[in-house]
Simulated assay, not measured.
Amino acid sequence: MLFNINSNKMFFFFILIFSTLISISSNSWMGCWIGLEINLMSFIPLISNSYNLMTSEASLKYFLTQSIASINFLFSILLKMIMMKNFEMNPLISILINSSMFMKMGSAPFHFWFPNIIEGMSWLNCFILMTWQKITPMILLSYYLNKNLLMIIMMLNTVIGAIGGINQTSLRKLMSFSSINNLGWMMSSIMISETLWMLYFFMYSFFISIMCFLFYILNIYFINQLFMFNINFLLKFLILMNFLSLGGLPPFMGFFPKWIIINFMMMKKLYIINFIFIMMSLITLFFYMRIIYSCILFNYLKLKWNKIFIKNNYFKLILIISLISSIGMIISTLFFL
């Protein structure tokens, strides 16, 4: 298998998938809440490991934060049922529901638990938390949207996600702040249309999966371990090109959903938000370039005999998938120039 998962954890993994489907297909708020609770109780066994204290601590922190968000969500649902005399949106209730969803997905200003919990997880769990666990809160957020609040929160996400990742040496924390930054772009896409959000989310999940899988098979958790990533220069560049796509550097494929969002915001005359988004993307590209720089250019004399031989056929799969990122260059020349 791709990752070492026993049969019990596979069972909880399937429950995790079905709980998300329950929430997004429910026609009542209580059904959405039940799906979120099943999702919480199925993800904790995937995190926890009796042989690792960090995973046990991460599962406990995750349980506490998600429980607080669920209580807030349930309280806002009950408040909505009591106060609902007509179908007009109550600003207080919409803020409560939106803030509980922000806490569920690890959005700023409720993001403080997110990097700490990711630090104690395996790369598979990091991938699930950064991608799959954001689906339900984002879709529930689109049901009861407070646009004024959302504009402030998505600017906060891009700023905190960019600045928070600058001084990080841990790759897991760096990827978590990158996820917070991309969350701001996702919120802006879901404010425009759900189709655009799906496009952005699938492309983001695609690039995150490549990076998490790469770090998993190389057993790398910190930037200084990238010095040991001692393989062919061209192979390194092709793999790390995904970082540039994740940062949204043109003409790579990850730039296109961001380009569409920028165009829509220009049409809506949201120039200040657009400016903040573009500037924060440059900062994220800075710490991605730092990873690429350390991986490609740094070399020690003792590493000349310390070669890494990866006896894993999945490494070839990563290499092939990495080349897909260069398709963005072809699309840009055919359709966008």
Rank of each mutant, 00 (worst) to 15 (best):
L199Q: 10
N263K: 02
I278D: 05
L218A: 08
S26D: 10
I223F: 06
L150K: 00
I192H: 00
M81K: 06
P109E: 04
F237S: 13
L64G: 06
C126H: 02
W33Q: 01
L124E: 07
G164S: 10
L16F: 14
N148M: 13
L92E: 07
T284R: 03
S325T: 15
L36A: 11
E37C: 12
L337F: 15
T333A: 07
G161P: 08
N182F: 03
L78F: 14
I44K: 07
L249P: 03
A69M: 12
L171R: 06
S245W: 04
S59Q: 10
M241V: 14
I22G: 00
M10I: 15
F43D: 04
I44P: 03
I261H: 00
G106V: 09
F207A: 05
I318E: 02
L74D: 04
K173D: 07
E119N: 11
Y293P: 02
Y143H: 11
S70P: 04
N86V: 02
S42C: 05
Y288N: 04
I34Y: 06
W185P: 00
S325G: 15
T20M: 12
M203Y: 07
G164E: 08
S107F: 03
I24R: 02
A108D: 03
P257M: 02
N182Y: 00
F264W: 02
T284K: 03
F277A: 04
F14T: 13
N52H: 07
S322A: 13
I77V: 12
L145C: 09
K269E: 09
W185L: 01
L171P: 04
Q225T: 06
L2F: 10
S70K: 07
F309G: 10
F73P: 00
M155K: 10
Y51S: 08
M84P: 01
F336D: 05
R172T: 07
Q225G: 11
N86C: 04
